[in-house]
């Protein structure tokens, strides 16, 4: 699964730390999601969507092997 979190973060001009504080996870968790090492739960995806004010589909995208 691909994601646009890094890009969305850049648009809002916030760091991983800022984003992690907003949604109540650790900075390392945001880093893992950005690097595609961890697929977040629906709850976390919806929290990210609410921070970025975009639909979950616009932030996360399925790949062929998913």
């Amino acid at each position: 699964m691909k994601n646009r979190i890094k890009i969305e973060r850049a648009i809002l001009d916030i760091t991983q730390e800022d984003l992690s504080n907003k949604i109540g996870v650790s900075r390392q968790t945001i880093n893992s999601i950005e690097k595609n090492r961890y697929v977040p739960s629906t709850v976390l995806a919806l929290k990210l969507s609410s921070v970025f004010k975009k639909n979950v589909n616009e932030i996360f995208e399925l790949e062929e092997n998913d």
């Binding site: 109540g24 996870v25 650790s26 968790t29 961890y38 739960s41 709850v43």
Partner: peptide, 10 residues
């Protein structure tokens, strides 16, 4: 952990 989030649970 200091921040016990869903990744830590996993």
């Amino acid at each position: 952990e200091k921040i016990e989030d869903e990744l830590i649970t996993k």
